[in-house]
Design a protein around this nucleic acid. Structure first.
Lengths: 267, 267
DNA sequence: GGAATAGTGTCTGTAAGACAATATACT
DNA sequence: AGTATATTGTCTTACAGACACTATTCC
């Protein structure tokens, strides 16, 4: 529980810290941890990096890094996201602060305060290997063993990153109910079936196509119809294309049936 | 935008910082800022403290303080809340992390990373003067001039605390829709009219008593009926008493009509 | 034509919003 | 009695969920 003295483990880190505070090692390091979510093969996935050194060597961790002295955590998060995925901040995807983790000892090297961010991005062409030698890949969140369904294939997660991923999942699952965030998982034009598959992947439950359609179209500002039509992929009628609308909140909201609360004896 | 050298402004601060990092002043200070909300005279109010020294002398600031080296921000927030209001952490009120503010230069003295928390407490007996000589009082959020209704009576707010208060208001207003948090503003037993007045104060809009009642009672786990009845205060039929239920999420949610989103051309 | 998906129409149950009516307290 | 609030009842409208049906594409 007490803060241990810091021992640099790589030249990059040593250099960074020397530049960070010329007078010595800082008492507190501020970092960002990135939850980069996407939909791959119909499943919600998160980007993880295999750690190559102490601590948690061989475990999988969220990408992230130090906040520079002259930048805010928001700016650091956008920078890290670009470094990891080559995506530039814009309207194409969503980046939002999630929560800050401060428990003493969460990093054995020193006191590290980490502010987590989550990003929602469309399916990226490649597994987006990081610029450093570390191994990066997408993990389907189902396969992480976060909800008791832990198997021998579930990866070990470094630090308190399992908690961060759980918190992020909860936020994303709740937020697509009342905001048009689900469109951020898709390219700029999409079909209503694409949008429905996003909801099904994030909530992990099937939705009724006809009712979903009626609901989305009756929510003002959620999506906007484009004139053209897409191509049929597996046979079947060609679907119309839509783009993101201009609403920032959905009213009325799309409601899940499955709500993770204990409802007991009422009244 | 660049971080200025730190100049201690009080003996307490100097002592704290010396103890905080014996090798010198820390590069980053981690603090908590507390949004303590309550309902006073039918209006949503927040606790503010008048600053007695540099910077922002004479402005009003959120209560808060440094996170000690051996505690988490959660623990620091609970400690600060007790120091400000003499309320002990428990089921009686709500304490939750809001957001972390990191912009360089937000405190002119040094790089201060502040994690904000909001607490919902019942109306407290006294204005709860702080233990130090600083002036503390409740401010109705309407009177803070946060939404353009700024008058000459609106207080000057220190640092980026106007932003923090706005963020907190948004969170609380949204969260009482789908969680039973509104009961945290009340004593352990309350009438449905009391609960309705909480919603009316937080949302600043009148609610229909009969429909509110039916809605609350039909939401499983929101409130639980007590056998006894309260006293009539202003004449009129005596209302039945209720206590908090065991639901953690309201399903279905109580919906505001007024939603602060720009809804444009749909479809 | 057959299979597959997109999209429309319709029925039903539930619940919200408005409002009237009744019940119970205080003066 | 008169007033004020609590509580119940009822009517209308909106919408979610279910499901049948039509439309359009590929094979």
């Amino acid at each position: 529980m007490t803060t241990k003295p810091y021992v640099p483990v790589s030249d990059e880190e040593r250099d960074f810290l020397a530049a960070y505070d010329p007078s010595g090692f800082p008492s507190i390091a501020l970092t960002v941890d990135m939850l980069v979510f996407t939909i791959r093969a119909g499943r919600l996935a998160v980007l993880l990096i295999e750690r190559g050194g102490f601590p948690y060597k061989g475990s999988w961790a969220l990408p992230g890094g130090f906040v520079n002295p002259d930048e805010s955590a928001d700016e650091a998060a956008a920078r890290e996201l670009f470094e990891e995925t080559n995506i530039t901040v814009g309207d194409e995807f969503h980046l939002e602060q999630l929560k800050t983790y401060t428990t003493p000892g969460r990093d054995p090297r020193m006191r590290v305060v980490s502010t987590s961010y989550f990003a929602l991005v469309p399916d990226l062409p490649s597994p987006t290997g990081g610029d450093d030698a570390s191994q990066a890949r997408w993990w389907a969140v189902e396969d992480l063993g976060l909800e008791g369904n832990c198997t021998e294939d579930s990866p070990a997660l470094a630090f308190d990153h399992a908690t961060i991923i759980r918190d992020g999942l909860e936020r994303v699952r709740a937020k697509i109910e009342y905001s048009p965030l689900a469109t951020k998982f898709l390219e700029s034009s999409f079909t209503l079936a694409d949008l429905r598959r996003v909801y099904e992947a994030v909530w992990n439950e099937p939705l009724h196509p006809a009712n979903f359609r009626r609901k989305v179209l009756s929510t003002p500002g959620f999506v906007k119809a484009l004139g053209n039509k897409g191509e049929s992929k597996t046979g079947g009628r060609t679907a119309a294309l839509y783009e993101e609308g201009n609403a920032s909140l959905l009213h009325p909201a799309l409601l899940r049936r499955t709500v993770n609360t204990e409802e007991g004896d009422d009244e």
